[in-house]
């Protein structure tokens, strides 16, 4: 019994592996140039968020992205999960006012509370579209999960701009690029409405990290990856425990099964 079983397991494993490879290659084959793979701190079965990078990324979001992009699923209180204290969060939001209704039903501005979701730059989709040449900037709450290649794509977009004078004539012709268009290597169709948002020294980091374009893009991607799935570390931690437990239980079940069948083989 033992040998054929081991062989079967091997064969099914090989089939599973082969179908994965086929699947991955199949995905890679379609679409525009795909962004280069970068190593992220949160990748792999034991990967965690780099808290310092994510905090810097929050600063980039707050000072740059937040002017146009909402982050409507994240609340200020969630920032404590990035290692900020409750008082630091209160300090961060002390100048933010949000619109609410008072007891008489009239709209009033009140100071933001930690339980509030991130303030949106525009009151609604239509207003956001109207202020941005007809297309509302997407909400960034789950952006890393909502794009193929996830973090690599976000980082690719932020660093993938090519100025007009660096484009080849062939590219200009093929994609019909005008002087005012923003050309991005990794955006499907290449012409992206968003002007290059980041540049060297766009922000000044409190921890002394040099704010290069690369650094800012990587940091804000780390932050957005966290925003997309704040419970990721919990998920992986639980997963390690669950799988170790299941392997132990499967091993014992196998021993029991063999014992029960001992006289039938």
């Amino acid at each position: 019994m033992r040998k054929p079983f081991a062989r079967n397991l091997l064969v099914s494993g090989a089939i599973a592996l082969a179908s994965f490879t086929v699947g991955t290659v199949a995905i890679a084959a379609g679409g525009t140039e795909h962004p280069p793979h970068r190593h992220w701190h949160f990748q792999g079965p034991f990967g965690t968020f780099d808290r310092a990078a994510a905090q810097r990324g929050f600063q980039v979001y707050q000072e740059v992205c937040a002017a146009c992009h909402s982050l409507s699923l994240v609340a200020y209180r969630n920032l404590t999960e990035l290692g900020l204290t409750e008082n630091q969060v209160k300090g961060l939001i002390k100048d933010i006012t949000v619109t609410d209704l008072n007891d008489e039903g009239a709209p009033v501005d009140r100071p933001a509370r930690p339980s509030d979701r991130f303030k949106k730059p525009f009151p609604n989709q239509a207003a956001a579209a109207a202020a941005n040449n007809g297309k509302a900037p997407p909400d960034l709450s789950v952006i890393v999960k909502a794009r193929e290649y996830g973090p690599d794509y976000i980082y690719g977009i932020l660093t993938g701009y090519v100025p007009y004078d660096k484009l080849t004539p062939a590219q200009i012709k093929e994609f019909d690029v005008k002087k005012d268009d923003n050309f991005n290597k990794y955006f499907p169709g290449h012409k992206i409405a968003m002007a290059p948002p980041l540049s060297d020294d766009k922000v000044t980091y409190a921890d002394g990290t040099k704010a290069t374009l690369d650094q800012e893009a990587a940091d804000v991607t780390e932050f957005l990856a966290w925003a997309s799935e704040p419970h990721m570390e919990d998920r992986k931690r639980t997963g390690v425990r669950v799988i170790l437990f299941l392997i132990a239980l499967a091993g014992m079940m196998y021993a029991v099964k063999r014992m029960v069948w001992a006289d039938k083989h």
């Binding site: 998920r235 639980t238 079940m253 099964k257 029960v260 069948w261």
Partner: peptide, 30 residues
């Protein structure tokens, strides 16, 4: 019952692998 129990456990290990380490692999980003 014992053989099924063992089979279920092995199946759950693969399932747990997806649930905990690639929950969105079988879904679509869109």
């Amino acid at each position: 019952t014992m053989k099924d129990g063992f089979g279920v456990m092995v199946f759950l290990i693969v399932y747990a692998g997806f649930v905990f380490f690639a929950p969105d692999y079988l879904g679509h980003p869109d």
